[in-house]
Write a protein that binds this DNA or RNA. Sequence first.
DNA 1: CCCTTAATAGTCAGTACGACTATAAAGAGA
DNA 2: TCTCTTTATAGTCGTACTGACTATTAAGGG
Lengths: 238, 238
Amino acid sequence: MEYDKYAHEPFAVTADLAVLTIRDGTLHVLLVERGQEPYKGHWALPGGFVQPDESAETAARRELAEETGLSDVSGLHLEQLRTYSEPDRDPRMRVVTVAFTALLPHPPEPNGGSDAAQARWVPYDTAGPLAFDHDRILADAHDRVGAKLEYTGLATAFCPPEFTLGELQQVYETVWGTALDRPNFRRKVLATPGFVEAVPGAARLTGGRGKPAALYRAGTAATLHPPLLRPTPEGRPA
Amino acid sequence: MEYDKYAHEPFAVTADLAVLTIRDGTLHVLLVERGQEPYKGHWALPGGFVQPDESAETAARRELAEETGLSDVSGLHLEQLRTYSEPDRDPRMRVVTVAFTALLPHPPEPNGGSDAAQARWVPYDTAGPLAFDHDRILADAHDRVGAKLEYTGLATAFCPPEFTLGELQQVYETVWGTALDRPNFRRKVLATPGFVEAVPGAARLTGGRGKPAALYRAGTAATLHPPLLRPTPEGRPA
DNA sequence: CCCTTAATAGTCAGTACGACTATAAAGAGA
DNA sequence: TCTCTTTATAGTCGTACTGACTATTAAGGG
């Protein structure tokens, strides 16, 4: 068969977002309430159709700005997750969704923009069941982020520009759902070149109590060597 | 703006494949020669339009069977890579491509099917420049496979059902482009639970010469603990 | 002034890793 | 047949990394 002679059906293409942040030590996700059928009244991941003149990445960043109400989303971490293309995903028509994961440092109140749809931060554990196959997309996003924490400096995307090692550790603990030993975490982070760099002479009172913590900035390393592996998930003979 | 009132443009959706294998100790990729404009006469990754009743994954597996001529592709490793959606990717129309990576153990002669298009195994290093943005897709596939060798048992997808540790090591060396110490590689593979399991009493003459090697099968572990990290790429103080 | 809290420093044994050396089992060629 | 070459496999050794701890420092609260 000739490649170019295939009949092709028109598809609608959307860009949907799993926007994650940490509020009060818990992982939260940005959800919108659907105003129309199907799944009217259900919660769903924010997203929308890709326009004729934009890529899925551009559409995702536009949606991110609209839904969060942030004026500048250019510095935020946005990453393609995967594409969902099962024929019956949307009962109305054939929709192919390119899903993205976005990570926010400080949780803004959502929906500051002009959009009439409700948008809310929802704790990850209480999210769902969501509309369409968004439960699976959200779970995939969580898996991906958890895995990338091990071998990239992605955790700093959850933190403000200057952060303490305690805040960084809380990112790992929140996403992985496990407690980590503080001295050991500190040692490993500082031993990994390019992960964080110290802000000279700066310190911050973490919560009013306790010794002030030194501040760090995100480093330049794309990958962590050695990686920061999570504690043995199962009963492995480690 | 209301989510569901967005105007949407029809897109064509294709599933393209970066099919990788190892022939004669070199990484090869399956390419087809384009018979029509645009890029007529150029080499490209195999692929085709997603049909109305199938997902991108289904389309990719169908294309894989057509292009390789293999009757049973159900056991082969096929994995979604990412989606390419820039508006000007294809001069004819708006095409969104979901790219996949497939790994083949034993390299069959391509194009055993009825397709008239030429399909050939091309050494990875001499592939390109390819049609459209396929150079980038191929490079992304290579990056992804190289990274996944570190923390998954993916390398066994390049090997036949029963293989020697020398063959497994050659997969790593070929994809990473680096030489590995044989005793150390062996020790690490055998120390990683679930990576490989011994085939009792079986051995194979590797190339006619040398001591026969014991045979192993792919294990059941999804992720490798500890991971098999590649040698320090830069001058890191490891 | 203690007590609590949180950050940071340091210790110690077990494990993993890279660089080696040594041995075993096959075929090739003299 | 006897070596030489080739490949697989076994083992050694010093360093680095890891997890589980203990100890100290610096803040605020009663």
